[in-house]
């Protein structure tokens, strides 16, 4: 299953944007001078560099089709879960439950996605993992902070594995008239949600005045939110040709994705504040950790999945 022609057209557009961004960043760093180390510009350069790597990785995965995408998101889930549990896992009593989360639940969820068993992958974590992991934990006999520990692990799995796995699950939507092109749904979701993040950042940096949630995230502003979300929705509408949607439908769906993505970022920010850290990890230069980059995707992917599945029922 090699990607359809629309995929390559979209990629050409993304590469053009990246080249443009790299040029702008180059000009900005030159203007800052050799020793004018402006941290904002340095971070921008690092971010754009990481974007090149992320686009390359995602493209590679998509060229390998289903196996590539399922495999990539399984690895992303692993990296995200590793970051999430670093902030929560504290008790030795959870050791077996966490081993189960990493080495049983995560592979199982992606196996179910791989074999396309919708009836089980859509409930496996919220029903089975939810009930069995606390049983594993309770057998260790440690009751200290039990509910907190169980809920944190459950949440980690919902966010890092269950929600994230809805990205490759999009491949299983066989929409009439859109056969063999479902990879474009992933491309649409990723471009809109990450585009929204980037555009919020750009609008925020250029016009940001009024903070939208000063307690949660000092960098998020009303100007960034409105400018970013609206322009990302327009971007989504402009990409209607690669989707099964009409332009106005693409706009509404992109708006939904972008708003969910924004709130995803806000919720994950609240968790970071609560745990007293600035970033989830350090592995993506300029961005922080995997969860920092995925927070908006995981909040929008299941909603996007179900909206498409409901209104464009698969055959």
């Amino acid at each position: 299953m090699s990607p359809p022609v629309e995929f390559w057209q979209l990629l050409a557009g993304v590469l053009a944007v990246l080249i443009f961004a790299s040029l702008i960043a180059g000009i900005l760093s030159r203007r800052a001078g050799p020793d004018g180390a402006d941290p904002v510009i340095e971070n921008l350069v690092a971010r754009i560099r990481s974007w090149w790597a992320m686009v390359a990785l995602l493209t590679l995965a998509m060229v390998f089709g289903r196996a590539g995408v399922v495999g990539l998101f399984a690895l992303l889930s692993f990296a995200a879960l590793r970051e999430f549990l670093t902030l929560t896992a504290k008790s030795r009593g959870d050791h077996y439950a966490l081993v189960g989360a990493f080495f049983v639940v995560l592979p199982m969820q992606y196996y179910l996605i791989w074999i396309d068993w919708y009836g089980l992958y859509s409930i496996f974590i919220p029903v089975y993992a939810f009930l069995f992991l606390p049983i594993v934990a309770v057998l260790r006999g440690n009751v200290e902070n039990f509910l907190t520990r169980v809920s944190e692990t459950q949440w980690a799995l919902m966010i890092c594995v269950f929600a994230a796995s809805h990205v490759p699950a999009l491949l299983s939507l066989r929409i009439p008239g859109f056969e063999g092109k479902s990879i474009l749904l992933i491309a649409f979701l990723v471009v809109v949600v990450q585009g929204s993040d980037v555009l919020q950042y750009v609008f925020g940096k250029l016009f940001g005045r009024r903070k939208i949630a000063p307690v949660l995230s000092p960098s998020k502003t009303w100007e960034g939110f409105l400018g970013g979300v609206l322009s990302a929705s327009l971007l989504g509408a402009a990409l209607w040709w690669m989707t099964p949607f009409a332009p106005w439908q693409a706009f509404v769906i992109a708006l939904l994705i972008a708003v969910m993505g924004f709130f995803g970022g806000l919720v994950m920010s609240a968790i970071k504040r609560d745990k007293g850290v600035k970033d989830w990890g350090h592995l993506i230069a300029g961005h922080g950790g995997f969860v920092d980059r995925l927070d908006s995707v995981v909040f929008s992917a299941p909603i996007f999945f179900h909206v498409v599945r409901y209104f464009w029922p698969p055959v």
Partner: peptide, 18 residues
């Protein structure tokens, strides 16, 4: 930092943590 949580004494399988 943290390695004691990755593999507490007596456990065989490590849990991945940063």
């Amino acid at each position: 930092e943290n390695l004691n949580r990755v593999m507490p004494k007596g456990e065989v399988i490590p849990i991945p943590l940063l």
